[in-house]
Nucleic acid binder design. Structure first.
Lengths: 122, 122
DNA sequence: AACGTATTCAACCAATCAGTTGACAACAAC
DNA sequence: GTTGTTGTCAACTGATTGGTTGAATACGTT
């Protein structure tokens, strides 16, 4: 069981929440403090702080320290890990589909051939 | 709020569970019935059935009917939706990083220039 | 009609989660 | 040192989740 398992668990779980996906979208434009991030939402400041913490523990986000501010910024590597996982299996499924497709085409061609043979025989 | 929001919610949540990620990995190799899927795990047959249902409701998987069997197979489109979402923000973050990098390089160059000017002045 | 196989449904339990409010910690400025 | 700002921690609540077991459904076989 690779070490990436827990990270994937957390990263996928983190992005399952629409608020957290929105935070990520905004952070992709520019870094921000928790206060700035919290501003547009209805929910309490502390709730947003919790969301940011979840993103941080998933490795999707890191924070530096600037006096009492803790600016948040995206961590691209974690995203890479996710796309790699998803793409791996998507691609395998696609491969398999292509092979199946080719097999069906071949079978259809065989049928065609058989029909043609019959026609020629008659 | 786009219609894809709920699907993304469910798809990310579905893949947050290691058992379900394992099911996806195995389904990328070949379609399988719930019984076949359940076989290697310690947990009850019904638990696996539930997991498959979660994957299905997330659009990650579809099922056909073959007598009493319900073979499960991967649905590539849902995976595309996820990678598109992830890649979009990963890319924007990367873009932004490159611009910042360029800015820093330019500033460093300016400093260098200033130093050189001073040297030439002396 | 009765039986076996493959699968789902229903009810329940413990754990986790997203949200709340109130108290606390770290730092800057006065 | 007191005050203001930025943020976290702790305790609570209701909803959801991953698991269980037992009963029910759907279909093929005899």
């Amino acid at each position: 069981m690779g070490d990436s398992t827990q990270l994937l668990d957390r990263a996928f779980a983190a992005l399952a929440d629409p608020t957290r996906r929105d935070l990520v979208a905004r952070l992709s434009v520019s870094d921000a403090t928790v206060g700035e991030l919290a501003e547009p939402y209805e929910m309490s400041f502390q709730a947003v702080s919790k969301h940011v913490k979840v993103l941080e523990e998933a490795g999707l986000v890191t924070r530096s320290r600037d006096a009492q501010r803790r600016p948040v910024h995206l961590n691209r590597e974690a995203f890479d890990l996710m796309t790699q996982w998803i793409e791996r299996y998507r691609r395998e499924a696609e491969e398999r589909y292509r092979r199946l497709d080719a097999l069906l085409a071949r079978t259809a061609q065989d049928d065609e051939d058989r029909r043609t043979e019959k026609e020629q025989a008659s």
